[in-house]
C-alpha cells in the first residue's frame, strides 16, 4: 500500500471517529435522549412464533426444494450417492462440451474423482496456488462446481460461504453452476440457517455469505424474463443422500 494512501485512510479514520459521537449523538438527541441508549430489550426478534414451529420431513424438504428450484428455471436432481452425482456431472459436462471447470477445494469434491472421470477437461481447484489469478480462472470456466454449506427447502435456496478454499467467484462467474447439496444440510426454513450466523464468533463469520435461488435473471426489458444476465444462467442443484 502506498504511503500516501495509508495516511489518507488514517486521516479518514480519525475524522470518522471524531464525527461518530456527533452523528450518533444527534440521533439520540432527536429521539429525546441525553446519551446513546443502552442495549434495549428486543421483544420481536426474528420470525413470528408460529413460523418457527414449521418443520418438514426429509422427504418433503427434498420435494419442496426441487419444486421451488425448478419453478424459477433451475434444474434439480436427487441422487442416493456421491458416485451417482459424479456420473451425472461428468455426463452433463461432456454433453455441454465443457472445456474448463472450476471447483471449490472441498473434501467432498477432492474425493469425488471427477478429474479421472473427465481426463480431457481442464479442472481447476480454487486457490490451490494463491499466485494465480483465480478470478480470471473462474470467469473463463464453463462450469463452476460447489458443495453448499446450507440449503432451504421453503424458498428453494442454497447458501454458500466464502473461505480460503471456497471462492465467491466459483458460484458467480462461470456460465453454468452445479451445486451439490448433502441432504443433511437441507433445512425447512431460512431461520434454521440464520442461527449459525447470529451466534458465530467474529473469526468464524465468512466475508461472503451468499443465498442463491435459481439462475441469474432480469425483467428489465419490457418485462421480458431474461436468464443469465450477469451470473450463471444454467444452474443445477444436486441433492445427495
Amino acid at each position: 500500500m502506498a504511503e500516501q494512501e495509508l495516511t489518507l485512510l488514517e486521516q479518514l479514520e480519525k475524522e470518522s471517529r471524531a464525527k461518530q459521537a456527533k452523528f450518533i449523538g444527534g440521533i439520540a438527541a432527536k429521539l429525546g435522549r441525553q446519551e446513546i441508549a443502552k442495549k434495549p430489550v428486543h421483544p420481536f426478534r426474528g420470525a413470528p412464533d408460529f413460523w418457527t414451529q414449521l418443520e418438514w420431513s426429509q422427504e418433503e424438504r427434498i420435494e419442496r426444494f426441487m419444486d421451488n428450484w425448478q419453478s424459477v428455471g433451475g434444474h434439480a436432481f436427487h441422487f442416493a450417492t456421491m458416485e451417482e452425482a459424479k456420473q451425472f456431472i461428468a455426463e452433463r459436462a461432456l454433453e455441454l462440451e465443457a472445456k474448463h471447470i472450476i471447483r471449490q477445494n472441498q473434501p467432498e469434491l477432492n474425493e469425488l474423482g471427477l478429474e479421472e472421470a473427465l481426463p480431457e477437461v481442464d479442472i481447476q481447484v480454487w486457490n490451490h496456488n494463491p499466485a494465480e489469478n483465480w478470478k480470471a480462472h473462474a470467469a473463463g470456466a464453463d462450469i463452476g462446481l460447489v458443495v453448499v454449506d446450507h440449503a432451504i427447502a421453503y424458498t428453494g435456496t442454497i447458501t454458500v460461504l466464502s473461505s480460503q478454499d471456497k471462492g465467491r467467484s466459483v458460484s458467480l462467474l462461470p456460465t453454468v453452476m452445479m451445486a451439490i447439496i448433502p441432504v443433511e444440510r437441507l433445512k425447512t426454513r431460512m431461520g434454521e440457517v440464520m442461527t449459525h450466523f447470529d451466534g458465530a464468533r467474529r473469526e468464524d463469520l465468512p466475508a461472503g455469505i451468499h443465498f442463491i435461488t435459481g439462475p441469474s435473471r432480469s425483467s428489465d426489458i419490457e418485462n421480458d424474463l431474461t436468464i443469465g444476465v450477469h451470473g450463471p444462467g444454467i444452474v443445477y442443484a444436486l441433492i445427495v443422500g
Binding site: T155, G208, I209, H210, T213, S216
Partner: peptide, 12 residues
C-alpha cells in the same frame, strides 16, 4: 418472488 435470486451478506 419467494426470495431474490441473490441475497448476499458481506461481513468485512
Amino acid at each position: 418472488q419467494k426470495l431474490t435470486v441473490y441475497m448476499s451478506a458481506i461481513t468485512g
